[in-house]
């Protein structure tokens, strides 16, 4: 099983996400994470998808995605040449005795507390997947009440952009 991060530049058309997600389901490809949002160009969106493929070349996945009329460009972002970020909100139980330990972990991981009540805090953390996983492990003993996370966002390093190349 190998994981790949794909960055898709797509036309922002109704049903686009259904087309992409449906293709993955129908062809038996596994989506590990998905993040969708506007790109820097009006009418175009960016999808970052982490796909795990087993027993078939990634090429089959990208070729099938390329057949979708609204998909303009697909780039695989290799870990060395791209930055990757997860974004997470974690609601942790706090008691007077544990609060300071929780806050210490927040500082240590360069996370932020964005909401506080007497018996809980909401922590926001951004980072690569391993950092986020490590923070979760540290916070678990205190009691994680709720966890929300976005899909992985990824972008190629350096000054070049995918959109530039496409729209030339």
């Amino acid at each position: 099983m190998s994981k790949h991060v794909l960055s898709l530049l797509v036309e922002d058309k109704p049903g686009l996400l259904t087309r992409v997600a449906g293709l993955f389901a129908r062809r038996g490809y596994n989506i590990e994470s998905l993040a969708v949002g506007a790109s820097e160009i009006e009418g175009l969106s960016r999808i970052t998808v982490v796909v795990s493929v087993e027993g078939l070349p990634l090429e089959q996945v990208t070729k099938q995605l390329n057949k979708l009329i609204n998909v303009i460009k697909i780039v695989e972002l290799e870990p060395e040449q791209a930055v990757q970020r997860d974004h997470m909100l974690i609601k942790v139980k706090t008691e007077p005795a544990t609060r300071s330990q929780v806050l210490e972990a927040v500082t240590l991981f360069r996370a932020r507390v964005i909401d506080v009540v007497s018996d809980a805090v909401i922590i926001e953390v951004t980072g690569d997947s391993s950092k986020c996983a490590a923070l979760i492990k540290v916070l678990e003993p205190f009691g994680i009440k709720e966890l929300v996370q976005s899909g992985v966002l990824a972008m190629g390093r350096g000054s070049k952009s995918i959109t530039e190349k496409v729209l030339k």
Binding site: P57, E59, Q60, K63, Q64, N66, K67
Partner: peptide, 8 residues
């Protein structure tokens, strides 16, 4: 003509 058929 369909690249996805090649190597599928």
């Amino acid at each position: 003509i369909d690249p996805a058929e090649i190597g599928k």
